[in-house]
């Protein structure tokens, strides 16, 4: 049991590191906003061109604020702290997940608490991976914020002691099916952040009076709605393929374990709904009059479905996928 306790401590440690990262990311976003406001006053047009002429996402290098060398390093100190604490938090979380697996003697993603850990880890890993080659730090505050929220929720609401699993879960498909599902969720999380920013930034750009307040000046520091849309699409495309695989893998496993590949179990229904919503999103992007803002709303709805599939379906409905570990299964799984 000592390993399990150490794992919990590490999760708290990760949540703490990520909270520091969240604050540092927010400071960085705010500071860069001030810097940009100055630059903005100097030369309005170059900013617009600079930010708009690149289809790729690299706000730090395209915006004049980053080019006027002298003061730039000082301003990005917060960003440096944010990135290192995010790496630290993610590493601690990874250690916590590994220890949890050792304590339970199995793959550490078989109940809601463990889903929360691994899902947050995947979102952070995707975010860090994106930042290796380019600068996506504007997403940091939101990704770390969501991760902290999920981790604290997991520790306080979903926590169950580390132990083995019932016979229906003892299969290599647990590693594949659930692992891929969690990866997809992590990617959808980052894409969701990008789409929300896209919508908010777009509203500010088109003159929403509420979003003109000084408190929303940081929005000028995030990429253009078009760039955010492209980012969200690239992530969602990967997420959608992984989700498709999740469903196919789940069907193969269901065929092995339950004797049918598809049975409209609540979890299957919601996985199907999610799949259809993201499929609709991909269609909307290429439909005249439905791209841009409208398509972004599909991402929001899709992600809400993902969250509901994870929480609501596990806790409210009584289906074959009730593996939260929070309620006792009546038949012992066989």
């Amino acid at each position: 049991m000592q390993i399990a306790e150490l794992s919990v401590l590490l999760v708290w440690g990760a949540a703490t590191a990520l909270t520091i990262a969240l604050v540092a990311f927010a400071i960085d976003l705010g500071r860069r906003t001030e810097a940009r406001a100055e630059a903005h006053a100097e030369a309005r047009t170059p900013v617009a061109v600079g930010a708009a002429s690149r289809p790729t996402l690299a706000p730090a290098s395209t915006v004049p604020g980053a080019r006027d060398g002298a003061s730039a390093p000082a301003r990005r100190r917060a960003a440096g702290i944010a990135m290192s604490t995010t790496w630290l938090g993610t590493a601690l979380l990874l250690a916590a997940i590994v220890l949890r697996g050792l304590a339970a003697g199995r793959t550490p993603w078989a109940n809601m608490y463990e889903f929360t850990l691994v899902g947050s880890f995947m979102a952070l890993a995707v975010f860090l991976g994106m930042n290796v080659r380019k600068d996506f730090k504007f997403l940091g505050a939101f990704v770390t914020g969501l991760s902290v929220l999920f981790l604290v929720l997991g520790l306080n609401v979903f926590y169950v002691a580390a132990t083995g699993v019932q016979p229906a879960l003892q299969n290599y498909w647990l590693v594949i099916h659930v692992g891929v599902a969690i990866s997809a969720t992590g990617i959808f999380t980052v894409a969701f952040v990008a789409s929300v920013l896209q919508l908010v930034r777009d509203s500010r750009d088109s003159g929403s009076p509420y979003l003109q307040r000084p408190g929303f000046r940081w929005l000028d520091r995030v990429p253009t709605p078009t760039s955010l849309e492209a980012l969200s699409f690239r992530l969602n495309a990967v997420g959608f393929v992984l989700w498709t695989f999740t469903i196919i893998g789940g069907a193969i496993w269901a065929e092995h374990a339950w004797g049918r590949y598809w049975g409209w179990d609540p979890k299957e229904v919601w996985s199907f709904v999610i799949w259809v919503v993201y499929a609709a999103y991909l269609h909307a992007r290429t439909t005249r009059g439905w791209d841009g803002r409208r398509a972004a709303w599909f991402v929001i709805v899709g992600y809400l479905c993902v969250l509901f599939n994870f929480t609501g379906v596990n806790l409210i409905f009584n289906g074959k996928h009730s593996y939260s570990g929070l309620n006792t299964d009546t038949t012992g799984g066989a």
């Binding site: 896209q198 777009d202 078009t226 791209d291 841009g292």
Partner: peptide, 8 residues
Amino acid sequence: ADAGPSSP
């Protein structure tokens, strides 16, 4: 590319 899909 900015003239493309999501012009508000």
